[in-house]
Each structure stands twice: as C-alpha cells, then as structure tokens.
Design a protein around this nucleic acid. Structure first.
Lengths: 171, 171
DNA sequence: CGATCTTGGTTCAAGTTTGAAGCAAACCTA
DNA sequence: TAGGTTTGCTTCAAACTTGAACCAAGATCG
C-alpha cells in the first residue's frame, strides 16, 4: 500500500513537537545539572520515589512509573546510591527483588531543588500556555502515552490490567 | 518569594507530557534502529539535510535546525559519514567551516525508510488525535519552542534576528 | 599592520544509554 | 520434586551525549 504521508498541518505539528521536546528537555537537563548535579531523568526518579508509600519502590515498579527500561534504571540508581540519595534494600518477600529507597539526604536534595525546578518548568511551559492549552496538552499527551507500551514490551492494550500489576513495595 | 507549585491540572499535564515524550521517543528510536540502523535523532539530521538546497548545510546551521549542540552534531555526522550517508566538505568561503552533504546513498536510505517511519509516527501520534488536537499540539509546541533558546545559548529573544543568521551553505 | 576578540568546529574525558546476555530465585507442571 | 520456564534485576560492550577545553581562521580596532 502506498504511504500516507503527513499532511502539511501534520508536518508543522511534527516539526514543532520535535523542536519543543528537544529544547525543553535540554533546558531541564541543564537547569537540574546546574542546581542538583543530575540530569532531569534522575531527578524524576527521585521524585517518583518520594511519592511512593514509604518512599520506596521495587525496581521494576519504579522503572515502569519512570517510563524507562530496567537496565537504564539499574545504572541510574547505582549512581544515585553512590551519591547517597537512594539506598538499595533487599526485598524481603522475593529474594530476587531489590527495593530502591529514598534516603533522608535524597529527600533533602529534592526539597532544596524542587522550587528551582518548578520555576523552570513554569517559565518554559505553563506560564506560556493558557489554562485551556494546559488541558489540551494533558489530553493529547495522555492519548499518546496511552497508545504506547511502557517499560516491558508485553504488548498489552491501552487499558490498565490491575491483576498483572505489582502493588505495594513488599507486602 | 514562596514557590508557586504546580496546580493539580498542571501536574497531570506535566506527568502526561513526560510519559508521552519518553515513550514516543523510545518507540521511534526502536523503530528506526530496527529499520534504518540509526537512532531517531540521526534520521532527523538526514531529513533536515535532504530538505536543504543542494542537500547540504553548514554544520552550525544544521545543528541549529536539528536543535542540538554543535558537539553532538560533530559526532553524529562522523558516524553518518563512516556509514557513507553524509560527506563532509570544505566550505569554500570560510576556511574554518565545513559543510555536511547528503550522499546519494543517504538519499536512498531516506527513501527506503521514510515510509515505515511515517507509518510509526502516524500510528503513535496522528492517527490517535483529532484534527483539532493536531492544531492544538502545533500551537502549544510552537509556543514552548519559541520561548526556549536554541543551539548556542546567546540569550536572544523569541524573535528571529535575520542579520545574525547565516544563510545559504556557502554564498 | 599586529594584537585581540569572536566564530566555526573538533576533541577530550567522563557520564549516560542501549540491547543482548547472564544469573539466580520463583513459578509451574507433570 | 525434578525439570523447564518465567521473572527480576544486573552486567557487558558498544554506542551516544555532555560541557569544557582547544585550535585555527575570520573579524575588529588602534
């Protein structure tokens, strides 16, 4: 079948999308490298951890929430552990598993750097969009994310399947 | 001054944004690595080149259009040159400069792989959005990109300053 | 002109990411 | 309960990225 090329509307949107995502990620990386000594992704790993009950999460859970591969997470956590921001613990209920736990120092770093980070996100994004646009952005991104498999490529549908999902860190 | 944290609307939008961009970039990287043997960014460098007059561009121009640093581009072009998809030429008008030129083989690779790539972009993005959403996405992304400095961080405003800008590859 | 500044691009070293391969514990299943 | 499969996570080697340092050629200016 002959290719359905992008319409010119779609092309413009696609170019804008690529530019925006590249530039924004770059901005955030620079800001956080500057102020927190880590790339954006690492910061968001810490942030994810900080929201979990007990501030700890199984590696695979954390990878899934962070939308990255387990391998990538392993290296990231190793670095954060070396910096004392995260501690790896044995999972008591599954001897294969390990749990990443945010340390007090990790919490402190987060508390210290969060304001500057939020400020950057505001300045680059939210302060430049109308409230309607914020809503549209969420809707659009949710739609995109919903269509793409996350973490392990088990090929599940868009809807969550609770019974295939790990729950609390270590019950 | 006390931090203006994100509202819950903004938080939802921000989470969705991070998920969507990470997952989409991952999808495209995987698809293109598979089908073209290169990451998405490298493909887009080739695409940018293919649209330039003469299919050639000064390195700094190309970096600017690709929204990446000159350093990153240097390495990328080195790799693409090793693969025979791009050729580096001396810039005749400025002996410091070099020009990246898409080779015939580069064109061929692009022609061979573009359909699959467009298909992936469609499947992940455009076929999941309404036409209005495509318009909104463009508007939003243009707004974001417009607010962020590109390439060299010379701190210019959002508006283009034509007299600071290189033009044709080598006049 | 000659000293200095700027620009275009590369290089270096360190850090990050990737995908495949590896390993051990847990989970079947006969 | 032994054998095979799956799951959870790490490790390996190769690729990619980063930001600072570097170098040479243009531009400026006294």
């Amino acid at each position: 079948m002959t290719t359905r090329w992008l319409t010119s509307d779609e092309q413009r949107a696609w170019r804008a999308y690529m530019a925006a995502t590249l530039l924004l990620e770059d901005t955030l990386d620079r800001q956080l490298q500057q102020d927190a000594g880590m790339p954006h992704l690492y910061y968001s790993i810490l942030a994810n951890l900080s929201e979990a009950p007990q501030r700890r999460l199984r590696m695979t859970d954390l990878a899934e929430r962070s939308k990255i591969t387990r391998s990538r997470l392993t290296y990231a956590v190793a670095r954060l552990e070396k910096d004392g921001l995260v501690r790896r613990e044995q999972c008591p209920s599954d001897r294969r598993g390990s749990v990443a736990a945010l340390t007090d120092e990790g919490v402190a770093v987060l508390e210290r750097t969060a304001p500057g980070h939020v400020e950057t996100v505001r300045a680059s994004l939210f302060d430049r969009l109308s409230p309607e646009q914020v809503g549209q952005l969420e809707e659009i991104c949710a739609r995109i994310a919903g269509g793409l498999v996350g973490g392990a490529q088990d090929g599940g549908g868009p809807e969550d399947v609770p019974w295939k999902r790990r729950s609390t860190p270590c019950p």
